[in-house]
Amino acid sequence: MLRVENLTLGYGGVPVLEGVSLGVGEGEFVSLVGPSGSGKSTLLRAVAGLVRPRAGAIHRAFPPEALGFLFQEDALLPWRTARENAALGLRIRGWPKAKALEEAEAWLLRLGLQGLGDRYPHELSGGQRKRVALAQVLALRPRLLLMDEPFSSLDAILRTGVTRDLLRLVEGEGIAVLLVTHDLEEALALSDRVYLLSQGPRARIAKEYAVPFSRPRDPVGVRSDPRFGPLLRRLWQDLEEVALCAAS
């Protein structure tokens, strides 16, 4: 449903990324990993249409409204309650206020935020804020969700909880995901496919891995699968190699 062909990105001088091709299928969970400075985030922003490519093409088999974003900062409106924040996207799409708030409340419930709809962001914990941001995006019923280190500011316990809920909803709704992360374990636990980017500038796709675990999947339980360890080790070795190549 998403095809990126021979994409080159960057401003002036040497491009950050060069000749990158990748694809995301219907309902597929795909992760992008790579050393810092490999242009992972830039690539995601290009897919989102926030960065103009220097060369190459991005084909999307769906209208732009079917694209959802969740970036590192939660950026909820501090002057709006959790429910109003969750309803914001729907309101922008022209839903009447009452209906949008009702739908938003339903998504807050699905994300385990019952009874918190009237709270302002500063009255919520970091994890709860992430869930509100997630509700805001999922309420728009995207077909492809772009995420850039969405939970990196959370501690391990909160992060596991949010990730598990995210995976449940994404699998249930058949939403395709393109996730940028620096956490290899997380990438393996969540994805159907993982792309490894080489060190930038002129970063490209160094390796591609098919992740064999079945769905629906428990992102914690899957880590005790006997195939998980070897795959993670291979990913680590490749990442180190890629980073060393650039250093030499």
């Binding site: 989102a48 409204e65 900062e73 950026a75 909820l76 409106l77 914001l88 996207g89 922008i92 805001q136």
Partner: peptide
């Protein structure tokens, strides 16, 4: 104004 909020509303289509 917090530019992250501006970006957020823009990516939601506002």
């Amino acid at each position: 104004v917090d530019p992250r909020l501006v970006e957020r509303v823009e990516t939601l289509g506002g």
